[in-house]
């Protein structure tokens, strides 16, 4: 027994696929000047060695290593993340590009002895009692790729430690991820302890069992349905949006 599946299902991903390849689309976005074009292509391809080689040439040619971070590395990364946001490329491409970009940034910092100012600082953690951290790792990578400084507290982070880190680092946003229904309950305690301390920063929560209904139960909570929402939320904060506006933007259900 077999069927013609065309009346049973629709492969919308195939139907909506763009005619251009991702590589062709990226090539249209690279800067025209060299070595920026080659470095951006190497970031898009996730080729760490080629990124460093390009940077070496640029510095030999007189480029300021610190300026290269903003003017070339971040530009190349933005091409990658923009194409990801447009649904042209997939997450592993972004992760490999981020690895290459971060290696490039380290190299530039070593060469220049300084680093450019990040767009903002975000503290990331996985809820106490929860060791599932791949979601947090993706969030942290996407935030770094978007130019934010990330203080990664790791997984199974006690509430006390989260509060202490927020007090010490004064981030613009806190993120929390959890897989389990019982561990995500720690988010409420984090919220209460932050409020007790007079701290009112957006607390982006997401992952596994976390849902919008739960996150709306505490004042600072903003639900992040996708890991890719994290840099978008940070950008909105930089643009001046407050808690109510963030909830309006990201609470989609």
């Amino acid at each position: 027994m077999d069927i013609d599946p065309s009346k049973i299902l629709v492969r919308y991903n195939v139907a909506k696929e763009k005619a251009q390849t991702p590589e062709e689309m990226a090539a249209e976005l690279y800067p025209t000047a060299e070595p920026a074009r080659t470095i951006c292509a190497a970031i898009f391809d996730g080729e760490e060695d080629d990124v460093i080689e390009g940077l070496e040439k640029a510095i030999e040619g007189g480029a300021d290593p610190v300026a290269l971070i903003d003017d070339v590395l971040m530009v190349g990364m933005k091409i990658t993340t923009d194409l990801y946001d447009q649904g042209v490329i997939f997450l592993p491409n972004v992760m490999m590009s981020a690895d290459a970009m971060l290696e490039g940034i380290e190299y530039c910092k070593e060469q220049g002895g300084a680093a450019p100012k990040p767009k903002g600082k975000v503290v990331c953690h996985v809820a106490e009692g929860d060791v599932h951290d791949i979601g947090k790792s993706i969030v942290a990578a996407l935030l770094r790729a978007a130019g934010y400084e990330v203080v990664d507290l790791g997984r199974d982070v006690p509430v006390d430690e989260v509060i202490a880190a927020v007090k010490k680092e004064s981030p613009m946003m806190l993120t929390g991820t959890a897989l389990m229904t019982t561990t995500m309950y720690a988010f409420k305690e984090v919220n209460d302890r932050l409020l007790e301390s007079g701290i009112k920063i957006p607390f982006q929560c997401g992952g596994g069992a976390v849902n919008q209904d739960f996150v709306t139960q505490y004042e600072l909570g903003v639900y992040g349905e996708e890991a890719a929402d994290a840099p978008k939320m940070a950008d909105s904060i930089v643009a001046g949006k407050g808690l109510a506006q963030l909830k309006e933007q990201f609470h989609k259900h």
């Binding site: 909506k16 990801y84 997939f90 997450l91 791949i134």
Partner: peptide
């Protein structure tokens, strides 16, 4: 299952379903 959930639905862009 981590791979399957990252891969998600038809229009998700986090992992190729072939992977």
């Amino acid at each position: 299952n981590t791979a399957m959930f990252i891969a998600g639905g038809l229009l998700d862009k986090n992992l190729a379903h072939t992977i």
